[in-house]
Amino acid sequence: MLLLALAVMLGVKFFAPGLLSEPAVAAWSTVFVAVCVQASPYLVLGVAVSTAIAVFVPPTFFQRALPSNPMLAVPVAGMAGAALPGCECGSVPVAASLMERGVARGASVAFLLSAPAINPVVLVATSVAFAGHPAVVVARAAASLLTAIVVGWIWQRLGRSVPVPRRFTHPDGSSRAERARTVAAHDITQSLGFLTIGAAAAATLNVAVPRSFLAHFAGNDVVAIPALAALAIVLAVCSEADAFVAASLTQFSLTARLAFMVVGPAVDVKLIAMQAGTFGRRFVTRFAPLAAVTAALAAAAVGGWLL
C-alpha cells in the first residue's frame, strides 16, 4: 500500500505535473494536509490525557468522582466535558480511556459528545462569530449538553449489545513509564491513522460541494435544519472554527445554523472514521445516526425556544 501510494505520488509529480496544477486536486491536497496538521496538536493533547487516565489515574478516582447510579453519572460526565479545551478529535481517545477505566458507557459517550461542544474555547469563538446574537452562545451550550445527556441515557439503556474492543494493554508487571509509552503510541497511531481517512473524506466534500447549492434549502427550517446538519457532517470543520462557518451562512435562520454547530462536534466524517477505528464498526453504525438525529432535534427545540 505504501509503495502504491508512493508510486502514485511520484508518478503524478514527475509524469503528470499538470494534474497537481489542476485547481481541484491542488485544493483537495491543501485541505487534506490542513485538516491533518490542524488536528495533530489536539490529538496529542487528547492522547496525553487518555494516557494519564489509562495509566496514572486510579479507577477508584472515577468511582468517587461520578455518582454510582449510571443514569445520574451521565449529566455529571456531560458537564465535565466543559473542562477539556479542544476540538472533537482529542476527545475520542479520552472517552476510550474512560470506558476502559470502568466509567459507565452512558457517561463516557456523554463526555465524548459534550467535550468538543461546550468547552470555553469553543463558546468564546461562538460569541465572537455571532457578536450581535449572545443568545446563540447560550443556545449552543444548552443544545449540545442536552444532546450529550439524552444520547448518554439512551446509550446506557441500549448500548449493552455493542461491545467495545479492548485496547492494547501491557500486563501490569511492566513499569508505568513503559505502559504509558505503549498506550500513548498505540492511541496516537490509531487516532492519526483514522484521522487521515476522515480528512480525506472532508477534503473531498469540501472541494466537491459548491456552497451556492445550499441556497435551495435556506427558505424553510424543516428542510434547512437537516440540510445544515448534513453539511456539518460532511464538512467536518473543527468545533473551534465551525461558528465562523455557521455565521457566514447568512441566508439560513439562526436555528438552522445552530443545528450546524450542534451536530458538527457530535458527528462528522472525521469523527465517524476515528470512532470506527477506536470503538469498532458496530459501535459507529449505531452511535453516529443516534447522535446526529438527537443533535438536530435538540438544536431545533432549543433554537425554537431561545432564538
Binding site: L2, A5, F32, V33, Q190, L192, G193
Partner: peptide, 12 residues
Amino acid sequence: RTAWLVLAPVLA
C-alpha cells in the same frame, strides 16, 4: 495497517 495511513499526509 492504521499506521500506514499516517504516511499519507507525510508523503503529501
